Amino acid sequence: KKYKVVEVKENKDGTVELVVENENGEKKKITLSKEELDKLKAGDTVELK
């Protein structure tokens, strides 16, 4: 499934919390490390299994 990044929030521990949404409007929260996030920004599309 493809999800669009709608919100990006940095946590104090250096991880980043993303809120992503698919075309049905379903939202998910995922947490990434700073390194994983470096290639993402709001409006990008991510694929989740």
Rank of each mutant, 00 (worst) to 15 (best):
K1T: 10
K1W: 01
K1C: 15
K1S: 09
K1N: 12
K1M: 09
K1F: 03
K1Y: 02
K2T: 07
K2I: 11
K2G: 04
K2R: 09
K2P: 04
K2V: 10
Y3H: 10
Y3A: 07
Y3D: 06
Y3T: 07
Y3M: 12
Y3I: 08
Y3K: 04
Y3C: 12
K4C: 15
K4N: 06
K4H: 07
K4L: 14
K4P: 04
V5I: 14
V5L: 04
V6D: 01
V6Y: 03
V6C: 08
V6H: 03
V6I: 13
V6M: 07
E7Y: 05
E7G: 05
E7K: 03
E7N: 04
V8R: 03
V8C: 13
V8Y: 04
V8N: 00
V8Q: 04
V8K: 04
V8T: 06
V8G: 01
K9I: 11
K9F: 11
K9W: 10
K9A: 06
K9M: 10
K9N: 12
K9H: 13
E10P: 06
E10T: 08
E10M: 09
E10D: 13
E10C: 14
E10I: 05
E10L: 07
E10N: 09
E10H: 12
E10R: 03
E10F: 03
E10Y: 06
N11C: 14
N11H: 12
N11R: 06
N11I: 05
N11V: 04
K12T: 12
K12E: 09
K12M: 10
K12L: 13
K12H: 13
K12I: 13
K12R: 10
K12Y: 12
K12V: 10
D13H: 03
D13V: 01
D13N: 09
D13Q: 02
D13W: 03
G14H: 02
G14P: 00
G14N: 04
G14F: 01
G14S: 02
G14T: 01
G14V: 00
G14L: 01
T15K: 04
T15S: 06
T15W: 09
T15L: 05
T15H: 03
V16D: 00
V16F: 11
V16W: 14
V16E: 00
V16S: 05
V16I: 10
V16Y: 13
V16G: 08
V16C: 10
E17A: 07
E17V: 10
E17K: 02
E17L: 09
E17N: 07
E17W: 06
E17T: 09
L18R: 00
L18Q: 00
L18C: 09
L18G: 00
L18W: 02
L18Y: 02
L18S: 00
L18N: 00
L18T: 01
V19F: 06
V19Q: 06
V19M: 08
V19H: 07
V19E: 05
V19N: 03
V19R: 03
V19G: 01
V19I: 11
V20S: 00
V20C: 10
V20Y: 10
V20F: 07
V20H: 00
E21W: 03
E21H: 03
E21F: 04
E21K: 04
E21T: 06
E21C: 08
E21D: 01
N22G: 14
N22F: 05
N22R: 04
N22D: 14
N22A: 14
E23S: 06
E23H: 06
E23T: 08
E23Q: 11
N24D: 12
N24F: 14
N24V: 13
N24S: 13
N24C: 14
G25N: 04
G25Q: 03
G25C: 07
G25D: 01
G25R: 04
G25Y: 03
G25W: 01
G25M: 04
G25S: 04
E26F: 09
E26T: 10
E26R: 05
E26L: 07
E26P: 01
K27I: 13
K27C: 12
K27H: 13
K27Q: 13
K27S: 07
K27L: 10
K27A: 07
K28Y: 12
K28R: 13
K28M: 14
K28D: 07
K28N: 09
K28S: 13
K28W: 12
K29I: 14
K29L: 12
K29Y: 13
K29C: 14
K29Q: 11
K29T: 13
I30N: 00
I30R: 01
I30A: 02
I30S: 01
I30V: 12
T31P: 04
T31W: 13
T31V: 11
T31N: 08
T31D: 02
T31A: 04
L32F: 07
L32Q: 02
L32S: 04
L32C: 12
L32M: 14
L32R: 07
L32N: 01
L32V: 11
L32Y: 06
S33E: 11
S33C: 15
S33P: 14
K34C: 09
K34M: 13
K34F: 11
K34G: 15
K34R: 12
K34N: 08
K34H: 13
E35L: 12
E35P: 10
E35A: 13
E35S: 11
E35V: 11
E36I: 10
E36M: 10
E36A: 09
E36S: 14
E36K: 06
E36P: 09
L37Q: 07
L37S: 15
L37V: 12
L37F: 13
L37K: 15
L37A: 15
D38M: 08
D38A: 07
D38T: 11
D38N: 14
D38Y: 02
K39M: 06
K39N: 15
K39I: 10
K39Q: 10
L40K: 05
L40C: 08
L40H: 09
K41F: 05
K41Y: 06
K41N: 08
K41Q: 12
A42S: 08
A42M: 11
A42Y: 04
A42I: 15
A42C: 14
A42K: 08
A42L: 14
A42E: 13
A42V: 15
A42R: 07
G43Y: 02
G43D: 10
G43W: 03
G43M: 04
G43N: 10
D44C: 12
D44R: 02
D44P: 02
D44H: 04
D44G: 10
D44K: 04
D44F: 01
T45R: 01
T45Q: 02
T45K: 06
T45F: 14
V46E: 11
V46M: 05
V46N: 05
V46K: 02
V46P: 11
V46D: 14
V46F: 02
V46I: 15
E47G: 03
E47S: 05
E47C: 08
E47M: 02
E47L: 02
E47Q: 06
E47R: 06
L48K: 13
L48A: 13
L48G: 12
L48Q: 09
L48T: 13
K49C: 15
K49N: 15
K49W: 00
K49I: 15
K49H: 15
K49E: 15
K49A: 15
K49V: 15
